[in-house]
Write a protein that binds this DNA or RNA. Structure first.
Lengths: 207, 207
DNA sequence: ATGTAAATCAGTATTTCTACTGACGGACCT
DNA sequence: AGGTCCGTCAGTAGAAATACTGATTTACAT
């Protein structure tokens, strides 16, 4: 089987590295190396490709946009994304866009080879960290309002299904004080009750 | 690196097949083939193993139970589960139990070899269908099996930070009824309060 | 037809949470 | 020395949630 492969990265050195890596496997034929998303799309439009390996961060277009346009033009094109992001939102968007592999840059060599082979066989490959994110489910990495240390402490105990009284006992403070912290948490998170606090905790990875 | 491997399956023919498959890779040393969960646990207890490849369906113990006990005895033991189940719940439980690979029986040969190599390198491997389940899990609602439609409805409204009274108004039912649903939700999710319900909703993608 | 499960509703009691007002000492910064 | 934020605590009130007891109707499957 001959696997026509397109490499996309804005650093020439990376492109060369990828090519030499792929040369270890006869099945892969690197038909082009390009350094921008638009060049990549041009190739996809004009040539029948099997696989694209692309960086996520690029000058003219981010990886997500490239993947979406590529998939809309060539739904059968396999796509492996190289990235240094372990950010849940980025990963989630890419997975939903239909990529077949996601390899963190810190691994590359051996693991990328594994990834391309898996993908060639119709499988999908994610770096270990990505699998963790998948398994755990995904939460956004957003900065929220500034909670004080004590408030965060209370919130974390709240997440363990403790009542205010139990939290007070655990922190050796009065129930009143815990209620004050809760009150401030409600205000700072613009929520109207316990549900909002838990949702905030999830959204901010305080789980 | 020498990878001490234990094979678990209640069909001798499968065990033989696995062994011959692994013989293709010098790194793996099959130190035992057993046909039941309890025999497997005995080996894990007495020997220092690196990898266990196990069937999911077995006479004395299901795969999930085996995995849990194995992991509690030997947390560093890598585990690959062979199964014909593509059922979401089964998969989810196994993943949360900490397995490193899940290969559907319909693939076995080439793919299993891929899987063991990935796992040997510290990675994780899932069959394509499993990846789909994982991805679906992050985008769509994977419902817990035991909740009724109405309970799910109430839970979803609860997640929108509505009080029981507001939910009652929205569903044109009495506050009492909403409280009954909440009570049943608490029981079914083994939680002690609102926090637990929200956490359950997140864990089951009812957000 | 009989049984099981779901969905609906009620009373009573207790606990927990939220709303409001107000306060005091300490740390830190200017 | 004065301002601001943090963490601490209090009283009073009411709203909401949880714990227990139950019940009726409908619907669906055995």
């Amino acid at each position: 089987m001959n696997y026509k492969t397109l490499l996309v990265d804005d650093h020439a050195i990376v492109l060369d590295g990828l090519q030499s890596l792929l040369s270890e496997d006869q099945d892969f034929e690197v038909i082009a190396k390009v350094n921008s998303g638009n060049f990549a799309l041009a190739h996809i439009r004009s040539t029948s490709l099997s696989l694209m390996i692309t960086d996520y961060s690029m000058p003219d277009m981010n990886g997500l946009e490239l993947v979406r346009q590529a998939k809309s033009m060539a739904p059968d094109l396999k796509i492996i994304v190289l990235s240094m992001h372990e950010d849940g939102q980025v990963v989630q968007d890419l997975l939903l866009a239909g990529i077949d592999g996601y390899v963190l840059k810190k691994y590359t060599h051996q693991e990328l080879l594994q990834a391309v082979r898996v993908v060639k066989q119709g499988g999908q490959y994610w770096s270990p960290e990505i699998n963790k994110i998948l398994i755990r489910g995904i939460s956004k990495a957003e900065e929220g309002p500034n909670l004080t240390d004590r408030e965060i402490e209370v919130l974390k105990l709240l997440m363990q299904e403790l009542t205010s009284k139990e939290i007070a006992g655990k922190l050796f403070i009065s129930e009143r004080t815990v209620e004050t912290h809760r009150k401030n948490l409600l205000r700072k998170t613009n929520s109207s009750g316990t549900v909002g606090l838990v949702k905030y905790a999830y959204a901010n990875k305080l789980v």
